Simulated assay, not measured.
Amino acid sequence: MHSDIARAVRPHSMDGSSPSAPVWDPHQYLRHAGHRTRPFLDLLTRISELPTRPARIADLGCGPGNVTALLADRWPEAHITGFDLSPEMLRLADAEHAGPTPGGGHLDFRHGDIAEWMPEETYDLIVSNAALQWVPSHPGSFASWINGLRPGGTFAFQIPGNFTAPSHRLLAELCDTPRWRERLGGHGARYIHILEPAEYLARFTELGCAVDVWETTYYQMLQGPDPVLDWVKGTALRPVLTVLGDDRDSADRFLAEYREALRLAYPGGPRGTVFPFRRIFAIARKEA
């Protein structure tokens, strides 16, 4: 998840058995782990100390667990649980990160759809890294998630805010061309439910929280041939590739068209390809 997906949470109202529910490739996702991790590290630096020790922490949309493990570095005694809908992501997270932590805490992972997740216990921190963009209803869960925090606890997340950028606009336009519309129409335009920073600020203020909301655009230098295509193969392209499934000829034709459009939008230079990526951050602290 992490994601920019990038995780396996349910898109729109489709259930997990829907053929358009994304199938994730954690290894593809982790190809750009450095760039994907940086926003979460920036989020962590702004989270205040938690109300109890050892802390109880939930990571919604944990993906392959590499970012969830960073929570144990910050709160080494904590019991941390990552939730994700993707079996592929959870298998890797369990294999690589589950178990006792060096600081005396514990890290575990559970199958869970964050579109429906509600706290079954009280948490000091609920956090989500690049996952809520896959949950159109996520603002409607804020009140329940804040209620699931201890007094003085924190809910924090970061999500992509680049859904009008060429990478996503070109994908949406290609999915809606006559050649692809019947099979892929709508699969490239899933993100109109993302709120602007001021709207997130207003939502959490109405819930009585102390709020810190900001946005950042990272100018990432990606390496290799067609690096923007390689990036979106781990995230925004997953629903499209899932629909095309084993139809390799169609998948290859779609990728060839999309690749050419991305090359024009993101020309390579002698030191790599510049890929601007806007992120939205929010931290809501429950009244103590």
Rank of each mutant, 00 (worst) to 15 (best):
H2Q: 08
H2P: 15
D4H: 09
R7N: 15
V9W: 08
P11S: 00
H12P: 06
S13I: 00
S13H: 08
M14G: 09
S18E: 10
S20K: 10
P22N: 03
W24G: 12
P26A: 11
H27L: 04
H27G: 02
L30I: 02
R31V: 08
R31Y: 07
H32I: 01
A33G: 03
H35D: 12
H35Q: 10
L43E: 07
T45P: 00
E49C: 01
A55V: 07
A55P: 02
I57V: 12
A58Q: 06
L60Q: 04
G61H: 04
G61P: 09
C62T: 14
C62G: 06
C62V: 12
P64S: 10
T68L: 04
A69G: 05
A72Q: 13
E77W: 07
E77R: 09
A78S: 10
H79C: 01
T81I: 15
T81A: 08
G82F: 05
F83L: 15
L85D: 11
L85Y: 15
P87I: 05
E88F: 01
L90R: 11
A93T: 12
A93V: 04
G99R: 03
D108M: 02
R110W: 08
H111F: 13
H111I: 01
G112A: 14
I114G: 08
E116Y: 02
M118D: 04
T122G: 02
D124R: 03
S128L: 12
S128D: 10
S128T: 08
A130H: 12
A131G: 09
Q133I: 14
W134L: 09
V135Q: 04
P136I: 03
P139W: 04
G140Q: 14
G140S: 04
S141Y: 00
G152F: 01
A156W: 02
F157W: 14
N162P: 00
N162A: 10
N162F: 01
A165P: 00
P166M: 06
P166W: 03
H168T: 02
R169W: 06
A172L: 04
A172H: 01
C175F: 13
C175E: 08
P178H: 07
P178N: 11
R181C: 06
G186P: 06
G188Y: 05
G188H: 11
A189D: 14
R190G: 11
R190W: 06
I194E: 14
L195I: 00
E196K: 12
A198N: 04
L201T: 09
A202S: 12
R203A: 14
E206C: 00
L207P: 03
G208E: 13
A210P: 00
V213E: 01
T216S: 11
T216K: 15
Y218D: 15
Y219M: 06
M221W: 05
P225C: 01
D226M: 02
V228F: 11
D230Q: 14
G234I: 13
L237K: 10
R238S: 09
R238N: 10
L241Q: 15
T242V: 08
V243E: 13
L244T: 07
D247C: 04
R248Y: 05
S250V: 06
L255R: 13
A256L: 12
R259G: 06
R259A: 10
R259D: 01
E260S: 12
L264M: 09
Y266P: 10
Y266N: 09
P270C: 00
T273M: 09
F275A: 08
P276I: 05
P276T: 12
F277T: 09
I280W: 00
A288V: 05
